[in-house]
């Protein structure tokens, strides 16, 4: 699956990267990324996750070819 991050998350992860491990759902993905980069735990907790441009719940079952966007809290305006 492909992961893309935005804004402040770019200071913790590559803008875009691929995860080849099997990860069941968004909750598991959060855990996986938190282990990869413990400093990002708080921010990851506040993020929304989107698959193919639609927000998904933490229980969303990930598929191998999903392209996942990790969306930090907005600060537009």
């Amino acid at each position: 699956m492909t992961i893309e991050v935005y804004a402040i998350l770019k200071e913790y992860f590559e803008k875009q990267f691929i995860i080849s491990e099997q990860i069941s759902d968004i909750n598991a993905l959060k855990e996986h990324l938190s282990i990869q980069n413990p400093e990002a735990i708080d921010i990851l907790r506040s993020c929304r996750f989107a698959v193919d441009d639609e927000f998904v719940a933490d229980t969303y079952q990930l598929k191998e070819n999903d392209s996942i966007s990790i969306i930090p809290p907005s600060s537009g305006g």
């Binding site: 804004a7 402040i8 506040s46 966007s69 930090p72 809290p73 907005s74 600060s75 537009g76 305006g77």
Partner: peptide
């Protein structure tokens, strides 16, 4: 809406904003 701002200050530092917590 997924839009983010990064403030660039006169002293050369920068900070990602977070209006929504």
């Amino acid at each position: 809406v997924p839009i983010w701002k990064c403030e660039y200050f006169k002293d050369g530092s920068k900070k990602w904003g977070g209006n929504c917590n």
